[in-house]
Design a protein around this nucleic acid. Sequence first.
DNA 1: CTGAAAGCGCTAACAC
DNA 2: GTGTTAGCGCTTTCAG
Lengths: 363, 363
Amino acid sequence: MNTIQDVAQHAGVSVSTVSNVLNGRTDRMRPETLARVQEAIASLQFRPNTLARHLKTGDTPLLGLLVPSIANPMYGYIAREVETYAQERYGLRVLIGNTYRDKDKEASFFDDLLAQGVRRVLVISSLADEQHLENAARRGMAVVSYDRRATAGADSVVDHVTPDNYEAARMATALLIEQGHKRVAFATMAGMTMSRSAKISGFMDAAVAAGIGQGAQMLEGGQPTEYGDSVVSEVGRLLGARIGRDPQRPTGIVAVNDLMALGLMAGLRDAGLRVPEDVSVVGIDGLFLAALSNPALATVVLPVPDMARAMVERVMDRSSRSPAGCREMVFAPTRVMPGGSVAPPPDAGNSLAQKPRTKGKAQ
Amino acid sequence: MNTIQDVAQHAGVSVSTVSNVLNGRTDRMRPETLARVQEAIASLQFRPNTLARHLKTGDTPLLGLLVPSIANPMYGYIAREVETYAQERYGLRVLIGNTYRDKDKEASFFDDLLAQGVRRVLVISSLADEQHLENAARRGMAVVSYDRRATAGADSVVDHVTPDNYEAARMATALLIEQGHKRVAFATMAGMTMSRSAKISGFMDAAVAAGIGQGAQMLEGGQPTEYGDSVVSEVGRLLGARIGRDPQRPTGIVAVNDLMALGLMAGLRDAGLRVPEDVSVVGIDGLFLAALSNPALATVVLPVPDMARAMVERVMDRSSRSPAGCREMVFAPTRVMPGGSVAPPPDAGNSLAQKPRTKGKAQ
DNA sequence: CTGAAAGCGCTAACAC
DNA sequence: GTGTTAGCGCTTTCAG
């Protein structure tokens, strides 16, 4: 690796002139000097050492991204949008970490970032308290949190970017209501997070507004020991099987997210129920996988690219400005993507138990 | 952020003593001195600045990971395994980059890594030539490539970790043959890569060995302009629709990967064909999504966790040893995961056109 | 055992 | 315009 010294020598100038070129202060020199330096840089294939630069400037072109599990397609999708935008727009590289929603892992990631001189981080967490985020922010980090609202009252130093979970769940529920469903349920995994409770509110309010509040129920799957990916769908699958055995089962289910919905459909199938003939299912997220399922999963599409951009913008903005003007940005769902997983309820208008069926085409 | 100076002052020792503590050279000092330093470190919440350290040692605890797109569930899965293992075993953090299989993006990622002082990188690429990898390796990087074989003849300085693609395709094909399929096809997207051609060979050899070589065909979908994620399944979907219109269509299809298979199933459905009654489909990868599809996708499971570990081990090994002992590690598929997407061909034993069906249970 | 000092590669005053 | 120089925080000889 060549150093700035080598370039200076090669060009017959001093290091500061080279540094000036590197930092765009080209007005301070003769065009021919500039040309000479550029030539030297090119011929030596010189790339300034970012670390040495950081040591001086206290800033490194890295962005931390904390996700529960990058194997979860939704987080993979977000991560791709974030990385692509951060790179194209700001030349930032992304340091990724899987937290499995573990507090120690999150804290340790923050420590490492600090030690690496990384001063910007995007966090997709759902840990009950944001204390460690606030701490990091106070230690000089620009922190943007995804899928959470600002903690009421606290003058948070953390920015928030989140989909409108309440509205998303409301829209999903409305889709079922439009089809005439009276007994609806919201399926989620054990353990409450801010986004889940917002979705539950949206679901409940929609049901109550439609006059079917008493027919609305909660279905809570197990508490996954390992979070974030296949496990979510596995919980859905188990839940689907359980629903199959329930004579009082709902005719329409809103899943907390698409993975849960996909698992649910598999579980319902295992239990001998058909989607959508026996039970309708709606997801939330808008993963490309929804369109591939059989039947295609109806889902509320979240504006992932927009939110990814917003997170990057916020974190850049924050790291330049001083710790003020902290904001919360809430993104409305893009749209409802219809799918074959939703149809009118069996025995339309009648909310009593369905008789088991044994034949017919599942498609 | 406190510095080593602060700690030294706080403990009433010199910086070098603190440095010795930091680097485990505790034998060089009195136990009480050590205790005092440790106390100072703790009370100041001191974390040594990794960058400054790197500037001296020339090594940074970062691992580069290049993937076509992290939104592709398979790469997300690999990335998660890599990150988790690299972190737990070696305390390495992972710098991720989406290349969209673009040569310039890849090269630029390498440049950045070099500038960041990152000397280890894992590459999932399929670019025709590995020249840029070799270059990076020669510039002092430890490079491990996934899903490729070593270039024959060239004394590569790059390590290779790859599933046995030939064998995986062979196993997938055998699954169809066992069920009595005579007209089989291999579905892939346009554009040849090393792993794809290995799979094609495995597919062809299996067909020929079973005496149905003349009934084996290639189905090539479009060339996606943007690689790596939903697009793969989209190509599969288009391909599925095309197959539906083909009177000479195969009764069994091996897909180049699970995403393609999932897209294929959706496309076949769109075309009014049923899986597996009209056409059987087998995937390769073993994504958790395969088990969720309807019918469940039969797939050849690849040993992702093992391969992820091997990549990390190799890249660590390589960065400690000198550029010698370059290796190629090939991993046999874990197993065939059966699924409802495979069944005997229609009109078993007869390879002529199928008559359309309208009833029957789709599993 | 402990401390002083010389850098690692780069930036940014401050001179010339 | 261009060069000199003092660090950024840490590691590591080399003296004491």
